[in-house]
Computed example of a mutant assay.
Amino acid sequence: MSSVAVGILSGVLMGIVFGFALEKSRVFEPGMIVGQMQLRNWIMLKVFLSAVATGAVVLAFLHGFGFIKLQPKAALYAADIVGGLILGAGIALAGACPGTTLAQIGVGYRDAIFTLLGGLAGAVAFSYAQPWLAKSLIGTGPKLIFSELAGIPYWQGALALAAVIVVILALIERARPWRDDLGADVDGDVAEKSPQPRKRLAPAE
């Protein structure tokens, strides 16, 4: 099996696992997402850190045994900061992120359709602006790999990262158990009086 086929297969399997965890954790709920951005709900962070740790272990295995070859991108600090702030503001306003919009549409949140359209419009706008951005100050930077800076193989660095994340997850869970953050309606809204729920699409007869 070629490295491309292995990469595609592993990506599909990881996507299935991530999607299953996304639905079971109810992280796609707007209350979960907005609550995380307001630092009053930590389930979203736990799920995403779990995904990072899982991805690090899988990449450590695939790269360590030579199934794939990594092609790291340059560290664009200015672009990461500016883009992160814009993305964070959009997530807080929309109550959705790129990874949860389709899940929200699937369960019937009508406003998620507009979030998806806005995301697509933003992607198109970025494609036109990208040539200019690549030549600007925010488009240059060195390629930094922590494992290379530390002088260790990539698989060791990836496993070390996963171990650190597991410890962080354990500490967060001890301080804020996930059951306390679910809310009465399992939607992340832990306030005494829940706001009016969003309208969902009526099921097809």
Rank of each mutant, 00 (worst) to 15 (best):
G19S: 09
A158R: 12
I105L: 04
Y77W: 14
T54W: 07
A103L: 02
L93D: 03
I138W: 09
K193A: 00
I81Q: 05
S50W: 07
G183L: 00
A103Y: 01
P153E: 13
Y77Q: 10
Q156C: 12
A112R: 02
I138Y: 03
E173H: 13
A78E: 09
L13G: 02
G141T: 09
W42P: 01
V58Q: 11
E173L: 05
A163I: 14
A123Y: 09
A158I: 10
E173M: 04
L87N: 11
V166W: 13
G106R: 11
L62F: 07
G90A: 09
N41F: 03
A51S: 10
G108V: 05
L161A: 14
P98L: 07
D189N: 03
Y128I: 12
D80H: 04
V6Y: 08
R174E: 06
L116T: 01
V186I: 11
A112M: 03
L171F: 12
E173I: 03
I91E: 10
F67R: 09
V17E: 00
G15I: 05
W132Y: 14
Q36W: 14
A60E: 09
L161R: 08
R176M: 04
E192S: 05
E192F: 02
D187C: 03
H63K: 13
A5Y: 12
F18V: 02
F114E: 01
A51P: 01
P142R: 11
R179E: 14
A78G: 04
L87H: 10
G55T: 06
I105F: 01
L182W: 00
L182E: 00
G35F: 02
G122F: 05
A150P: 09
A129Q: 07
L117D: 01
S10W: 05
I168Q: 06
I91G: 11
K143H: 10
L9G: 15
A75S: 14
G99T: 09
L62C: 10
P203G: 04
A170I: 11
P177Y: 06
V47M: 04
L62V: 08
S194M: 00
F126E: 08
F67L: 12
S194K: 00
E192Y: 01
